[in-house]
Simulated assay, not measured.
Amino acid sequence: MFKVTEDMTIMDVLRQDKEVAYVFMKHGLHCLGCPGATMESIKDAANVHGIDLNSLLNDLNKFFEEKSK
């Protein structure tokens, strides 16, 4: 199963499954197509946008866990 980590970029995760975009949007990361999505880590993006990193990672990994069932 694919596991999302804080050092991955948003684009790393979207390349695995574009349907995961709604999880980022739910957490307030709406700039999925911006250059930062390919360069900065999920941790950095969460910090810049004031998003709870652990909550975001949990939801992203739940998404992939459900998809693997």
Score class of each variant (00 low, 15 high):
Phe2Ile: 08
Lys3Asn: 08
Lys3Leu: 06
Val4Leu: 02
Val4Pro: 00
Val4Lys: 01
Val4His: 03
Glu6His: 02
Thr9Asn: 02
Thr9Val: 03
Thr9Ile: 04
Ile10Gln: 02
Met11Cys: 05
Asp12Pro: 00
Val13Ser: 04
Val13Ile: 14
Leu14Gly: 02
Leu14Pro: 06
Leu14Ala: 01
Arg15Gln: 08
Arg15Ser: 07
Gln16Asn: 09
Gln16Arg: 13
Gln16Thr: 09
Asp17Ile: 00
Asp17Phe: 00
Asp17Thr: 08
Asp17Met: 02
Lys18Arg: 14
Glu19Gly: 10
Val20Trp: 00
Val20Leu: 08
Ala21Thr: 09
Ala21Trp: 01
Ala21Met: 10
Ala21Phe: 03
Ala21Lys: 13
Tyr22Ile: 09
Tyr22Trp: 13
Phe24Trp: 06
Phe24Ile: 10
Phe24Met: 03
Met25Trp: 12
Met25Tyr: 13
Met25Gly: 01
Lys26Asp: 11
His27Asp: 08
His27Ile: 10
Gly28Leu: 05
Gly28Gln: 03
Leu29Arg: 04
Leu29Met: 14
His30Met: 15
His30Trp: 13
His30Phe: 13
His30Arg: 15
Cys31Lys: 10
Gly33Cys: 05
Gly33Phe: 06
Gly33Pro: 04
Cys34Ser: 07
Cys34Met: 07
Cys34Asn: 08
Pro35Val: 06
Pro35Tyr: 11
Gly36Trp: 06
Gly36Leu: 11
Gly36Gln: 12
Gly36Pro: 03
Ala37Phe: 12
Thr38Ser: 15
Met39Gln: 15
Met39Ala: 14
Met39Asp: 07
Glu40Met: 14
Ser41His: 10
Ser41Leu: 09
Ser41Asn: 10
Ser41Glu: 07
Ile42Arg: 05
Ile42Trp: 09
Ile42Leu: 07
Asp44Cys: 04
Ala45Ile: 09
Ala45Glu: 01
Ala46Asn: 04
Ala46His: 04
Asn47Gln: 12
Asn47Phe: 03
His49Gly: 05
His49Gln: 11
Gly50Glu: 13
Ile51Thr: 06
Ile51Gln: 09
Ile51Arg: 06
Asp52Pro: 01
Asn54Arg: 07
Ser55Lys: 14
Ser55Gly: 14
Ser55Val: 04
Ser55Glu: 15
Leu56Tyr: 07
Leu57Asn: 05
Leu57Glu: 09
Leu57Ala: 07
Leu57His: 03
Leu57Met: 05
Leu57Pro: 03
Asn58Gly: 04
Asp59Arg: 02
Asp59Tyr: 03
Leu60Ser: 04
Leu60Asn: 06
Asn61Phe: 05
Phe64Cys: 11
Phe64Glu: 11
Glu65His: 12
Glu65Lys: 15
Glu66Trp: 01
Glu66Arg: 12
Glu66Val: 13
Glu66Cys: 03
Lys67Arg: 15
Lys67Met: 14
Lys67Thr: 12
Lys67Asp: 10
Ser68Tyr: 02
Lys69Glu: 13
Lys69Pro: 03
Lys69Ala: 13
Lys69Asp: 12
